[in-house]
């Protein structure tokens, strides 16, 4: 498994997300303060690739993104859906290396 460099940290607005294409995988990368998190970009409730465009925040201390379609929350650190115990989405390793944002996607 290797790290893929996606972009510079300053290309992601603080407390917001971007989408990246790593091989054929669509990944949503979020920046909270100066830390980064990565989830699958696909919202399992609508099957649309939109999570990177959701609002980032916290619910009872858990960092989350809210799906822009039907507003369910997904944990940035674990990928589980807060409203529906049975649903969870892929969660990827992400880090900053100096200026750069890197993500690890299993393939």
């Amino acid at each position: 498994m290797s790290w893929t460099t996606v972009c510079r940290l300053d290309e992601i607005l603080p407390n917001a997300g971007v989408a990246a294409l790593i091989d054929e995988t669509q990944v949503a990368i979020f920046r909270v303060d100066d830390k980064v998190y990565a989830l699958a970009n696909k919202d399992p409730f609508s099957n649309a690739n939109v999570l990177s465009r959701g609002i980032v925040g916290s619910i009872q201390g858990t960092l989350v993104v809210a799906s822009p379609i039907y507003k369910q929350h997904f944990s940035l650190e674990a990928g589980n859906c807060l409203e529906d115990d049975g649903v969870s989405i892929p969660c990827y390793q992400a880090r900053t290396e100096g200026e750069l944002v890197q993500v690890q996607v299993n393939s």
Binding site: A16, A48, N49, R53, G54, I55, V56, P68
Partner: peptide
Amino acid sequence: AGLQDTNDRYLANMQKNG
């Protein structure tokens, strides 16, 4: 920008397929 609902953030109305 990061505060806006997706419609405001991208200045258009998101539909069901993104």
